[in-house]
Amino acid sequence: MSGSSFASGPSAGGASPGWRTRDIVITAIIGVAFGVVFWAWNVVYGAAEPIFAAAPWARDALYGVWLIPAVLAPVIVRKPGAALFAELVAAGVSAYLGSQWGVDALLSGVLQGLGAEVVFAATRYRSWSFPTIAGAAVLSAVAAWGHDWFLYYSDVSTDIQVLRGIAMAVSAVFFVAGGSVLLARSLGQAGVLDGFPGGPVPQGTRAG
C-alpha cells in the first residue's frame, strides 16, 4: 500500500511507478493554471499583431509563454513524462476554454511537450542544470516552429522562417528556461515544494 502522498520517496500505486498522486495532481494543476494563462496569452498574441506590423516575425518573441509548463513541471516533479503531461493538460484546457487554434492546440501541446521531454530523457532525468533546462526549452520551441511552418507558414520564405525561429529560440531561453528556474526557486522559497526534488529548501529557512 502507498503511504502518505507527502512521503518524500516514490511510493507504490497504480500502473505508473514513481508517480505519486501528489506528483500527478501538481503536474496537472500547473498545466491547468497555465492553460488559463495560455487562454489569456492567445488574446495578447492576437492583440499584439498591429504592434509588430513592421516586423511580424518578431511577434514570436512572445511564443515562449506557451512552452513554460513543458519545462516548469518537470523541473519541479522530475518524473518521466511530466513535460508532456503538463503541456498537454495546459493545451487541452486552453483549447477547451476557447482557443483560436482549436484542436491544433492539442497537437501543438503534444509536440512541444515531446520536444522538452526528449532533452530531459536524454539526461535520464538526472541533469537539471541551466544548460539542460535551456536545451529542453529550445527543443520545445523547435518542435513548435516546425509544426507552425508546416501548418500555418508553408508558403512563407525561408529567411523569414529562420528569423521566426531565432525569435522563438530567444523567447524559449528567456521565458521558458529563465522563467521556470525563477518560478521554481520562488515557489520553493514560498514553501510549497516541500517533498519535491525540484524544490529543496534548506531546513529551517522555510516560511511555513
Binding site: S2, S4, S5, F6, R20, T21, R22, I24, V25, I26, A28, I29, I30, V32, A33, L183, L187, A190, V192, L193
Partner: peptide, 16 residues
C-alpha cells in the same frame, strides 16, 4: 501558482 499548488496538495491528500 502558490495557491494552485496548495490547492493541488489538498486535492492529492483527499484523493489518496
Amino acid at each position: 501558482l502558490v495557491r494552485a499548488i496548495r490547492q493541488g496538495d489538498a486535492l492529492a491528500l483527499a484523493m489518496d
